[in-house]
């Protein structure tokens, strides 16, 4: 679709329709597909359906959800599982920082921000950044909430499909569902725009298995801290062109 940065959406109902139209396509398909993988993995790792759904709605970030199920399956103690799940989604802090000012309006109570951040995911963040120039500031919050609610509904639907699908399907298809998790992320991350992120990913690839062999408990954290710091240092030193 072609976009001009002209203010086009100035009334509530057209903003709602725009949000529905944007969400009910690629974003919702992606979420159903990716959370199907998570649902099946959660079941194979011993979580109940209620836990899987709570994780999807409550963590609402696939990397952390995967870290949680994977670390638990590896037999890591609860504190380290929680720490890894949290750190895998650390990006929510910078994402919220850059996003919230865009939907802030003097007529809104700012305390809602603490609830609104829970809805944020990479999909709603990217859609908002792209669309907001055409939406009047007071209506941006509406766009964001409608879009995010559609995404979460899709995510929960996918989780249920994956949870039951994994046992109902023939074995190769069920394995495929679980394989969807690393596959989906590899492809998604391969499209990263930020050079710093790409450097960090490439450094993390060998370090992950290596540090896991050295210590299943600390391995993932060490990969993040050591690999991430190295990537940060390399990027600061050799490339100042982007984030």
């Amino acid at each position: 679709m072609s976009l001009t940065n002209k203010l086009q959406y100035t009334d509530a109902s057209s903003v709602t329709r725009l949000a529905l139209r944007d969400a009910l396509g690629f974003p919702v398909i992606m979420l159903i597909a990716s959370m199907t993988g998570f649902g099946s993995l959660a079941r194979e790792s011993g979580f109940t359906l209620g836990m899987a759904l709570s994780s999807t709605a409550g963590i609402w970030g696939l990397p952390g959800q995967l870290a949680m199920t994977e670390m638990h399956a590896a037999g890591v103690s609860a504190v380290f599982v929680i720490l890894a799940a949290s750190l895998a989604n650390a990006r929510f802090m910078p994402m919220s920082v850059s996003f919230l000012p865009l939907i802030r309006h003097p007529d809104h109570n700012d305390r809602w921000s603490y609830l609104l951040v829970q809805l944020l995911s990479i999909n709603s963040w990217a859609a908002g950044i792209r669309r907001f120039p055409t939406i009047e500031v007071i209506h941006r919050r509406r766009y964001y909430v409608v879009f995010a609610v559609v995404c979460i509904t899709g995510g929960l639907t996918g989780t249920v499909i994956g949870y039951f699908g994994v046992s109902a399907m023939p074995r190769p298809a069920a394995l495929g569902l679980i394989f969807l998790n690393p596959l989906f992320f590899t492809v998604l991350l391969a499209g990263s725009q930020s050079k710093a992120a790409i450097i960090a990913l490439i450094i993390g690839i060998p370090l992950g298995p290596l540090f896991y062999l050295l210590s299943p408990e600390w391995g993932l954290l060490a990969t993040g801290l050591i690999g991430g710091s190295l990537a940060f240092w390399l990027h600061q030193r050799y490339d100042k062109s982007d984030v």
């Binding site: 990397p63 995967l66 870290a67 994977e70 890894a84 750190l87 895998a88 989604n89 650390a90 990006r91 910078p94 690393p182 992320f185 590899t186 991350l189 990263s192 930020s194 710093a196 992120a197 450097i199 960090a200 990913l201 490439i202 450094i203 993390g204 690839i205 060998p206 370090l207 992950g208 298995p209 540090f211 896991y212 391995g219 993932l220 954290l221 990969t223 993040g224 801290l225 050591i226 690999g227 991430g228 710091s229 190295l230 990537a231 940060f232 990027h235 984030v243």
Partner: peptide
């Protein structure tokens, strides 16, 4: 950001 991406790369691999 770098720390979380390195973790992701490590976890996926």
């Amino acid at each position: 950001t770098c720390v979380s991406y390195a973790m992701l790369g490590g976890l996926i691999s």
